[in-house]
Design a protein around this nucleic acid. Structure first.
Lengths: 213, 213
DNA sequence: TATCATACATACGTGTATGTACGTAGCGAT
DNA sequence: ATCGCTACGTACATACACGTATGTATGATA
C-alpha cells in the first residue's frame, strides 16, 4: 500500500491520485472475478453469459478477454479464488480445534457462515454440472471436493479411534454423506442466519451418529 | 393389455404380433422420456442436447418434436413422470407410518433407495439451475419442492406437539435443512447401497435434533 | 388394393454466445 | 510534447442448438 515504491513523480501529496496501471488492472480483474463468481453461483457454467458478467462488473467482454484467456480460464480463476477464501475463512480456523469432532462441527458452522454471501453455490453448482464429465473445470472441482473428502475421512478415523465417533459405515461413505448433507442443507437454507449454523452442525452430527450437535 | 379391444382382423393367435399405432407411440414416448430424464439428471436443462436425447432413445429429433411441443414441454413431462414415480414409491408408502418421526425417517430411507437409479438428480439439478429464475420449468420444480417442504413442516409440528421431536429453530427452516441435507447426502453417495439408507436417515435425524436414527 | 393418417427422418432457417481481429483512449518514461 | 505499451471497446466470423418445414415409410381403413 506504500505509494513510495515508485520513483514517484506523481504527487504523494493527497487526493484520490489517478490509479496506476497495476492498480487499474487489479481492480478490473477483481471486479470481473466477483461478477463471474456470482454468475457461476446463480447460473452455472454453461448458462453463464460472459457479456452479462462483464456488464455487471462495469465493463464489456473486451476487458474480460484481455484479463482471461477464455471462459474456461475465467471459471478456473473463480474456483481458485473461492477455494482460497474458503481455506482462509473456514478450513484453517477449523483446523485449530482440539479434537476431530470439534473440527468437523467447526467446519459445518464455518461453511454455513461462509455460504451466507452470494457465491455460496459455486462449488455445488459446478460439481452438479460437471459430475461424470471430462472437463478441465470439472476436474478441478473434483480435485477440491476430493481434498475435502480426504480431510473428513481422516477426522472420522481419528474420532473413531478416540471413541468420540461411534462405528458405522466405511469412513469414506460417511465423509461423502457428511459433505453432501452439509452443502445441501446450507444451500437450501439460502443463508438465513442464525439458524443455518445450528442446522448445519446438526446435519453433520447426525451423519456421524453423534447424539447431539 | 387385452388385445380384443380392436375389432381385430389382426390375429390374436400368438407370436410377437406387430405393434399397433398406440403401442408404438407409447413405446417411443416412454423411451424418449427415460432418455430425457437421464439427460436432465446428468446435464441439467440448458446443457441438455435434444439430438443426444433422441439418439440415446434410438430415434432422431423428429420423433421428439412429434411427441413433445418443444424442449420445455419435454422437461415438464419428465418432471411430472419423475414426481409421480416418487409419490408412488416413496411418498405414499411413508405416509402409512404411525408417528411423524417414523414417517420422516421412512421418507429419508425411501428417497435414498429411489435415488439409486440414474434419474436421481433430476429435481436437484433443475432446482439448482432455475433457482431465482422465472422459467416455467423452474416454477414447476419449485412447486414440487414447496409441497415437500410443507409436508415436512406439518410433520415437524406434529412431532413437536407429541414431544417426539425436540424444540428448535422455526419448523420451516428445519424442513428446508432436512430436505436439503437429504438430497445432498443421497446425491453425494451416488446410490452406493446399502449405506445410503442409513446415512440418509442419520442426516435427517440429526437435523431434527433426534438422538438416534 | 387404394387411400388416408400416423410416426418418424431429413433439411433448412435463425438466434445466440463464443472467440478473435482491430481500433482507441489513457498511462509511463524519455 | 511525444511515443510505446497497456487496458479496454467495437465489429466480425464461426459454431452450435433450437424450432420448423418438408419428405417418407408404415399402420389403419374401406
Amino acid at each position: 500500500m506504500s505509494p513510495e515504491t515508485a520513483t514517484a513523480r506523481t504527487p504523494p501529496r493527497s487526493a484520490p491520485r489517478r490509479p496506476t496501471q497495476a492498480e487499474r488492472r487489479a481492480r478490473s480483474r477483481s471486479a470481473l472475478l466477483q461478477a463471474a463468481a456470482r454468475g457461476l453461483s446463480r447460473y452455472g457454467y454453461g448458462n453463464l453469459v460472459l457479456e452479462d458478467v462483464a456488464r455487471e462488473a462495469g465493463y464489456t467482454r473486451g476487458a474480460l478477454y484481455y484479463q482471461f484467456k477464455d471462459k474456461e480460464d475465467l471459471a478456473l480463476a473463480v474456483i481458485e479464488w473461492v477455494n482460497e477464501s474458503w481455506m482462509r475463512e473456514v478450513g484453517e480456523p477449523a483446523a485449530q480445534q482440539a479434537d476431530p469432532v470439534a473440527e468437523l462441527l467447526a467446519l459445518a458452522r464455518g461453511h454455513a457462515v461462509f455460504c451466507r454471501r452470494d457465491i455460496a453455490r459455486v462449488v455445488m453448482a459446478l460439481r452438479m454440472e460437471f459430475a461424470g464429465q471430462d472437463h478441465p473445470v470439472g476436474r478441478e472441482i473434483e480435485r477440491i471436493w476430493e481434498t475435502g473428502v480426504k480431510r473428513c475421512v481422516r477426522l472420522i478415523n481419528l474420532g473413531r479411534k478416540a471413541c468420540s465417533i461411534p462405528p458405522g459405515p466405511p469412513a469414506r461413505a460417511v465423509a461423502l454423506a457428511l459433505l453432501g448433507a452439509l452443502e445441501g442443507a446450507v444451500i437450501a437454507l439460502a443463508g438465513q442466519a442464525p439458524n443455518d449454523e445450528l442446522l448445519a452442525a446438526r446435519a453433520v452430527a447426525g451423519v456421524l451418529g453423534l447424539s447431539e450437535a
